[in-house]
């Protein structure tokens, strides 16, 4: 790989299944050593994109290069340069952790001895030493995922693909996987990660590409995407559901800005520019209107809100 050239590069990728266009001209560029989060709702085309970039799927149109190799013309070279962690923990349940890693090491054409040494190395690194000789069927979800991750790192590939690596894991297992990923990233591995969890992208990714309907609709650092939504937000938490509409009208009038309502959380959220002025105005207006307020907070927008804003328009059209 040439330094400076992107580790992952996609131009106009298209893939159609019958009437649905899974990829509708997807463009993407991930610099070497960066962590890119591919964020999108179910069916947005994230998995299809990963399958194309890892040579599992041939695109109908477009070009993609991974670690400097064309995915359709030199799939073998791409395969030698990547690791893939798919949506399922693709490990052998019957075999032990060490047997699994030795098996995949041998399939990477390591010698028997080198494969065993590498297996022990990785088991140690992912905190699985105690479970080395136990069959994987007895592993917890987090352990299984870590073994899966280890299996994708047998040859320390320069580019790693992770397709929803923490889907279905409990919070503890999720943080285990995140820790393992952070350690990898510190070693300079380029990572392309798909996720539905915005927190995950926020925690791990340098750049985020929001994917919707088979193309990238926004790209940038998590901070930049949040800035794009208009700076800070003010949240007002109420005591009673009955107050919700009246409070929203009051807040809107005080700031001349539209509010978002979250009835389940009894919360009103509104974009603001001047934090102190907005806070004073809203509290005074609510006091005058006689609305009981449980809490008020000024905060940065979450990636969730960025995401809903970017992908919500399509949902509204569909509804």
């Amino acid at each position: 790989m040439h330094t400076g050239s992107p580790a992952v590069e996609a131009e106009g990728l298209r893939k159609r299944y019958g009437d649905t266009e899974a990829l509708a001209g997807l463009d993407l560029s991930v610099p070497a050593g960066a962590v890119c989060g591919l964020l999108g709702p179910n069916g947005a085309g994230k998995t299809t994109a990963v399958r194309v970039l890892t040579t599992l799927l041939r695109p109908d149109a477009g070009r993609a290069r991974v670690a400097g190799h064309d995915v359709t013309r030199h799939p073998d070279r791409v395969r030698a340069a990547i690791g893939l962690v798919g949506q399922h923990a693709a490990v052998d349940d019957v075999l032990t952790g060490r047997q699994n890693l030795t098996l995949f090491g041998r399939l990477h054409h390591l010698s028997r001895r080198a494969a065993r040494a590498r297996a022990d190395d990785l088991l140690d690194r992912f905190g699985l030493t105690a479970a080395t000789s136990r069959p994987v069927s007895g592993y917890s979800g987090g352990m299984r995922r870590r073994l899966d991750l280890a299996a994708s790192l047998l040859l320390a590939p320069p580019v790693l693909f992770l397709d929803e690596p923490t889907t279905g894991l409990d919070p503890r297992a999720r943080s285990e996987v995140w820790d393992a990923l952070r350690a990898l990233v510190a070693d300079g591995t380029t990572v392309l990660l798909t996720t539905q969890y915005l927190e995950e992208a926020d925690q791990l990714a340098d750049t985020v590409a929001v994917v919707d309907a088979g193309r990238v609709v926004a790209e940038g650092t998590p901070e930049r995407l949040k800035d794009g939504l208009g700076g800070d937000r003010l949240d007002v938490l109420l005591h009673h559901t009955a107050d919700l509409t009246r409070a929203a009208a009051t807040v809107s009038a005080a700031l001349t800005a539209p509010c978002d309502l979250d009835p389940a959380a009894l919360r009103i959220s509104v974009p603001i520019t001047d934090r102190v002025a907005a806070l004073t105005a809203v509290l005074r207006a609510l006091d005058e209107a006689g609305v009981g307020v449980a809490d008020v907070a000024v905060r940065r927008p979450t990636l969730d809100e960025v995401f809903l804003r970017l992908t919500g328009e399509r949902a509204e059209v569909a509804a």
């Binding site: 599992l56 893939l84 995949f104 399939l107």
Partner: peptide
């Protein structure tokens, strides 16, 4: 079903 075939297919084997 378990993605092991996909892993094989992503290896340089």
């Amino acid at each position: 079903a378990r993605g092991v075939t996909d892993r094989f297919r992503s290896l340089p084997m």
